[in-house]
C-alpha cells in the first residue's frame, strides 16, 4: 500500500503538531488529525508508520519526547520548543567566514547538503541575518571523494552502536560481511579509516572506508567499549600487528623515499639521511612488498626470513618477466 499523502508532508505536519502542544498529543489524536495516517488500513499498519516516522525524526536530531503518566503509561508525544531551537551562537566576523569556508570544503562530496544545511541554520540563528558566504570564497581543501559511509559511521560512533558492512579485504580481495564496534574515525592524507573492534577476529582492526561495499548498517546492539585511554589519533593506521616484523634495510642515499617516510613516521630521527633503517612492519608479506618495490635501493638485511622471502619474490618476478637469471 503506497502512502497517498507525501511522506515529507506527513512528517512536517507531525513536527508542527508535536511542537504546537504544551502537554502531549496522543497516538489516537495523531492518527485521526494528521493527513496521511488515515490511509493506514489497520491498527498495526498505523503503528508501523508512526514508529518509523518517530524514529526518522529522532535520527534527524529532532527531540521527540515520550510523555508518561504517573503509572508509566504513554500519554503521548511532544517536541519541546526549547530543546528544538538552535540558540544563537556568538561568532565573530572571522569565525563566520571560517565556518562558511568549512562548509565549502565538502562541495562536490555526496554529503555536501549536510554541512550546507548547517550553515543555513547558523545564518538564520545569528542576530544579524547576514549572509555568511561571500560569493568568491573558495577553500584550499576539497573533499571530492568523501565516502558515503562517513555519515552512518559518525552516527554509530556517537551512539556507541555496532555496525555491519561488506568489506573487500586488501590481502585476498574477498568481500566479507564484517561486524565492528566502532571506536573512532580518522582521516589521513585524504583517506578515511574506521578504527574499532572486529567481532569476528575479536581484535582491534582498521578499515578503509573506500573498501566498504554497499550501505553501512547501524545495529541496535551496543558496541564493545574501547579500551581505557583509547585515542583514535594514536591508533595505528594498520590493523594490529598479526605477526609484526621488525626489519632492517640497507638504503641507497637519496633513494627509497617510501621506506624513509615510513621510518620518519615511526620516529626515526635521521630517516632521510641514514644508510640503514629499521622499521616495524605488520607482516612478512609487507616487508617483502616493500623490499621488492624499492628494488636495488633498499635491501633487507634482517631478519633472515624477510631476506629469504624478498629474494624468493624477486626471483619469481625476474623469471615471470622472461629473465632466465643471467
Amino acid at each position: 500500500m503506497t502512502d497517498r499523502v507525501d511522506r515529507t508532508e506527513r512528517l512536517l505536519n507531525l513536527v508542527l503538531c508535536l511542537m504546537a502542544t504544551a502537554t502531549a498529543v496522543s497516538r489516537a489524536t495523531i492518527r485521526q488529525a494528521i493527513p496521511g495516517y488515515g490511509d493506514a488500513p489497520s491498527d498495526a499498519a498505523f503503528e508501523r508508520m508512526f514508529e518509523r516516522d518517530k524514529d526518522e525524526l529522532r535520527s534527524m536530531g529532532i527531540p521527540v519526547e515520550t510523555v508518561l503518566d504517573v503509572s508509566g503509561e504513554v500519554v503521548g508525544y511532544r517536541i519541546p520548543g526549547d530543546s528544538y531551537v538552535l540558540h544563537p551562537i556568538d561568532f565573530t566576523v572571522e569565525e563566520r567566514a571560517a565556518i562558511a569556508l568549512a562548509a565549502q570544503v565538502w562541495s562536490g562530496a555526496s554529503i555536501a547538503p549536510v554541512p550546507g544545511t548547517a550553515l543555513r541554520k547558523l545564518e538564520s540563528a545569528s542576530a544579524s541575518g547576514h549572509d555568511w558566504t561571500p560569493a568568491d570564497l573558495r577553500g584550499p581543501v576539497e573533499l571530492t571523494a568523501a565516502d558515503a559511509a562517513l555519515l552512518p559511521l559518525m552516527q554509530a560512533v556517537r551512539d556507541e552502536k555496532v555496525v555491519t558492512f561488506d568489506y573487500r579485504a586488501p590481502a585476498d580481495d574477498t568481500v566479507r560481511k564484517r561486524t565492528v564496534s566502532p571506536w573512532g574515525l580518522r582521516s589521513s592524507s585524504g583517506r578515511w579509516f574506521l578504527v574499532g573492534h572486529d567481532h569476528d577476529r575479536e581484535a582491534q582492526r582498521t578499515f578503509r572506508l573506500s573498501r566498504m561495499h554497499g550501505p553501512v548498517q547501524v545495529m541496535a546492539a551496543a558496541r564493545i567499549p574501547p579500551p581505557e585511554g583509547f585515542e583514535v589519533s594514536r591508533a595505528g593506521l594498520d590493523a594490529g600487528p598479526d605477526e609484526g616484523v621488525r626489519a632492517r634495510f640497507r638504503v641507497a642515499p637519496g633513494r627509497a623515499a617510501r621506506l624513509r617516510r615510513m621510518a620518519a613516521a615511526q620516529g626515526v630521527v635521521d630517516a632521510f639521511e641514514a644508510d640503514t633503517i629499521t622499521v616495524e612492519l605488520r607482516s612478512l608479506a609487507d616487508a617483502t612488498a616493500i623490499a621488492c618495490a624499492a628494488g636495488v635501493d633498499a635491501v633487507v638485511v634482517e631478519p633472515p626470513e624477510a631476506v629469504a622471502a624478498a629474494r624468493a619474490a624477486l626471483a619469481v618476478i625476474a623469471s615471470a618477466h622472461g629473465d632466465g637469471g643471467s
Binding site: 534527524m60 536530531g61 531551537v85 540558540h87 570544503v105 554529503i111 549536510v114 548547517a118 538564520s124 552516527q155
Partner: peptide
Amino acid sequence: ALTLERPMRLSQQEALTLLIALRML
C-alpha cells in the same frame, strides 16, 4: 511561520561535518 520561526538545533552530523572541515583547514 507557526513554530518554525527559529532554526532547529544542529544535528550531530551537521556539527561534525563542519568540525572535520575546520580541522582540515
